[in-house]
């Protein structure tokens, strides 16, 4: 064996890689490959696939119905990401500037909701937001503050609210990680060099926290784009995202090839978004301070 390794040095590396590679193959590459193959086939009458090559599925994804859903999903994911950033950055900054003991407590507090199932938490929002029987509208109306229920449910607002609620910690944690490591003497140096608080933020804190902001934004944007539980529940069946259409193709319409094609187009869009994001921040900025 030793002699074999001496003769083929790469062999040892390949052998060591084998367990991880097997795992990746079985759980990642193989399923993805099946989906890819399906996307080029035709649907069977009662589900399943017919082994007949076709590009029809990909053409259909650009039908105006689906394409507009793509655009809407993109818009909802972008707005969600932006709101998460707006809420998450100050929160991360606040936590990172507390004494170490308090920081762990606050991070724990941030994580506690996640001990409850996501579906249940989304249904909890449903009880709050529902148009006629929701807690918010009922309370406001019985208090006489409004006389007609507010449109809190079954629209983009409800979906974005649900997504922001669900993904906010994914924005906070990476930003917190970069801010926590930020050397406070840099802030003192900037303020010593005549920078006011807002200048210190713009010139030092923000550029140095960009790696966290980028990571957080991706962590929010990608799952938001593919979301289907939140729009299914809070969209009230009226407001859909691309994730709902894909799950419908597999579960309701029994059109696996078309669902596969939609999945692949969505993955391509995500990949593109990721690339653009990484391009927009130079490699220097992505480097940890």
């Amino acid at each position: 064996m030793q002699r074999l390794f001496a003769r083929y040095p790469a062999l040892r590396a390949w052998l060591l890689l084998l367990p991880a590679a097997t795992w990746l193959f079985i759980f990642f590459i193989a399923p993805l490959f099946i989906v890819l193959v399906y996307s080029f086939l035709e649907r069977g009458t009662y589900g399943g696939v017919v082994w007949q090559f076709s590009l029809e599925n990909f053409r259909r994804t650009f039908d105006s119905l689906y394409f507009s859903t793509f655009l809407r999903s993109f818009y909802i994911a972008a707005v969600t990401t932006f709101i998460c950033l707006l809420l998450g950055f100050p929160l991360a900054y606040y936590i990172s500037t507390r004494p170490p003991q308090r920081r762990s407590t606050l991070i724990l507090a941030l994580m506690i909701p996640f001990w409850t199932n996501f579906l249940i938490r989304t249904y909890a929002w449903l009880t709050l937001l529902r148009t006629n029987t929701g807690l918010i509208n009922v309370s406001l109306m019985s208090l006489g503050i409004i006389d007609k229920p507010l449109p809190l449910f079954g629209n983009d607002f409800a979906i974005i609210l649900g997504l922001v609620y669900g993904w906010l910690p994914d924005m906070v944690l990476p930003i917190y990680a970069t801010l926590e490591r930020l050397d406070t003497s840099l802030l003192e140096a900037a303020s010593d060099l005549y920078a006011s608080s807002s200048k210190v933020f713009r010139r030092v804190i923000w550029p140095l926290s960009l790696p966290g902001v980028v990571a957080g934004s991706m962590l929010v944007f990608i799952p938001s784009l593919g979301a289907f539980v939140t729009p299914a529940i809070l969209g009230g069946g009226k407001s859909l995202m691309i994730g709902n259409i894909i799950s419908n193709q597999f579960l309701a319409a029994h059109d696996w090839p078309f669902g596969s094609a939609l999945s692949f187009v969505m993955m391509a869009v995500m990949l593109l978004a990721t690339l653009i994001y990484f391009r927009s921040t130079t490699s220097e900025e992505r480097m940890q301070p």
Binding site: S185, L186, E188, D192, L193, Y194, R203
Partner: peptide
């Protein structure tokens, strides 16, 4: 007065140069 309004400058122990 805050630091940015004082006519002094500081050289920090670990330099505190802006890495970006």
């Amino acid at each position: 007065l805050p630091p940015y309004q004082r006519p002094v400058n500081t050289v920090f122990q670990h330099y505190a140069l802006f890495p970006h």
